[in-house]
Amino acid sequence: MAGSDWRDRYGTEGGGPRPASLGVMARVFSEDGLGKWALYAPTVFVILFFIVPTALTVVWSFFERTMFWMEPGFTLFSYVNFFTSARFENFLFSMLHSSVSVVVSFVVGFPIAVFVRRHVPTVAQHRVILLFILPFMVSEIIRTFMLRPVLGRNGLVNTFLTDLGVISEPITQILFTPTGVIIGEVLSFLPFIVFSGFLAMEAVPKYIFEVCQDLGASRWRTFWDIIVPLAAPGIFAGSVFIFVNGIGVALIPSILGGPGAVNAGLIATQAIIALDIPLAMAVSAIMMVTLFGLLAIGHRLFNLTKILEPQA
């Protein structure tokens, strides 16, 4: 809004009295006041809290390690160390487990988003989706730790199945295995796919379902050929959230994984504990490159800005 508009609206030039408070607001938010600078706030925020830390992470990853810290220099040692040691193998495994978590989350979570969009009255849809925030009210460490007495040797699942006579020996292949990690990740991150799936589904007009039905399309075909492509940007965004958290959140493999279960977050943490700061920075940089790579691919394929476009 031009400064003259403010003056016209509040009568600085058009005559007649104007409220004093509005006059102050007008001056503060005019092009010559804070309004001019408010436009730069997001830019400053991104520079301070994203670009600078990211750049420092990359720069520090090339520094030389010292006994307690690091010193300026240029060495690829941390990267060579990462890619030629078992850490890379661990990193690939954590990517594999996270990929499985993404698939399971999609299979479980996206139909929920579709169901809410299609069958829940419009006025109640956001409230229903908000229900998925409730688990986040409980600390993640507690949510994850609570799976132990459920999935453990003497946990609820084993006790229940034993009491039913289904099993005679407790199942020990769930907890402290990759399966345990995947279960933990799905339960922790499922809301991401529900939220983003729902956002994407808002772009799908309700009449699409009726048209498909009228044309005799099966439910599967409607889902796979119509809904999924239309909601692809949202599905992809949710999947990236889950994938990145899967390789980055150290808590879940620590509590539910088997001996030595790690992901990239835990590899970085262990490097910090060993005072190998450049290595920790290199692991972080590799994670960021992975994330940016995924986002670039996703944007090229699905145009991710679509999920933020206002819907009619």
Binding site: S85, A86, R87, N90, F93, V262, I267, Q270
Partner: peptide, 11 residues
Amino acid sequence: YQDWWAKVQAA
């Protein structure tokens, strides 16, 4: 220590 611990974890 660090490198071999990573191998133990990966095994």
